[in-house]
């Protein structure tokens, strides 16, 4: 080490300056963490407060929230949220059901099968997938998927193309990278010793995957699926563009339906703050938030059960 470097180092270490003594970096990161917690708390509180207003307003017919009738202009008005809650769950669950085998298969390929060069191609491709804005997915959905369903499957009921299935298919593609990358991490987290031990017993690669890798990473893969579910349930724009937004209970894969997010965005700008209709939209936001919080709690519980090696 040269003398000049030593001098520089001693200058840095030897004379604590006023700024150093303030320890700004520590304060900055603490402030960042604190403000994040504060913002989340404020948002939860604000949405919750607005979400319960319909129940506190006399004459708002709040009991209708638990019904299936969405008729805000009827007399008396009815703000049944069940069509939207059911719609959100239906679109989400179907998307996850289609996406999970694809994503887990892709993650297995990346983690266990793919040669290095294939991984080098697929991984950036997945990252690009994540970066595509949802409006692009929706635009592709309405331009390609919806007409394709209508033109080829009108015989089985896709008379307009806008449908539950269209929404779920768009979401399938959107959540695929989320599930894949987290499941991939879960597979990579399984120690090589376990694989080696299994292979040493004379098992095939598939047997190792089936009996060692999958059980060992089950909690991590479930986490991936639930995070995919959370993204699907919260997606608004892309889904709204292809599901037809019919505010009735879902009647079938081929038929239009509506979700919590799509109904909120449809009505948001045109209702007046303080009226029961607007309050019902806040209640929808609260329900959506509770669904997300439920998913997060589920993930944390699963991670708590995760095996450590």
């Amino acid at each position: 080490m040269s003398t000049s470097t030593l001098t520089a180092a001693s200058r840095l270490l030897g004379r604590p300056r006023f700024l150093d003594r303030l320890d700004l970096p520590r304060r900055l990161v603490t402030a960042a963490a604190g403000s994040m917690v504060l913002i989340v708390t404020l948002m939860l509180g604000f949405v919750a407060w607005n979400g319960i207003q319909i129940f506190l307003t006399p004459g708002s017919n709040a009991g209708s929230v638990f019904s299936t009738a969405w008729q805000p202009l009827a007399n008396p008005a009815s703000f049944g949220l069940l069509p939207f809650v059911t719609g959100t769950l239906a679109v989400t669950m179907l998307a996850v059901a289609i996406s999970t085998p694809l994503s887990v298969g892709l993650a297995l390929f990346l983690a266990e099968v793919a040669p290095v060069w294939a991984r080098a191609v697929v991984q950036p491709a997945l990252e690009i997938f994540v970066g595509i804005p949802s409006v692009v997915y929706g635009w592709l959905g309405i331009t390609i998927l919806v007409p394709w369903l209508r033109e080829n499957f009108s015989g089985v009921g896709f008379t307009v193309g806008f449908s539950w299935l269209a929404g779920s298919l768009v979401l399938t593609v959107m959540i695929l990278p989320t599930i894949t990358s987290i499941a991939y991490d879960a597979f990579r987290a399984v120690p090589g010793d376990l694989r080696a031990a299994s292979l040493a017993l004379g098992t095939t690669r598939w047997q190792t995957i089936r009996h060692v890798l999958l059980p060992a990473s089950a909690a991590g893969v479930l986490t991936a699926v639930i995070l995919g579910m959370t993204r699907a349930a919260g997606e608004a724009l892309a889904v709204q563009m292809v599901i037809g937004n019919r505010p009735t209970m879902p009647t079938g894969l081929t038929q239009p339906l509506s979700t919590l997010t799509s109904q909120i965005t449809l009505d948001m700008g045109n209702t007046v703050a303080g009226e029961p209709w607007n309050q019902a939209l806040w209640t929808m936001s609260l329900v959506l938030l509770l669904i997300a919080v439920g998913f997060v709690l589920l993930v944390r519980w699963l991670n708590g059960r995760r095996q450590t090696f």
């Binding site: 309405i142 919806v146 007409p147 307009v160 806008f162 563009m241 037809g244 937004n245 009735t248 965005t265």
Partner: peptide
């Protein structure tokens, strides 16, 4: 007859739906 219709919220979305749906 909203139970039998598609719902779209803006001029742009309505235009897109009508021009692409026979």
């Amino acid at each position: 007859a909203s139970g039998k219709a598609l719902t779209e919220d803006s001029n742009g979305a309505v235009t897109k739906a009508v021009e692409s749906t026979p």
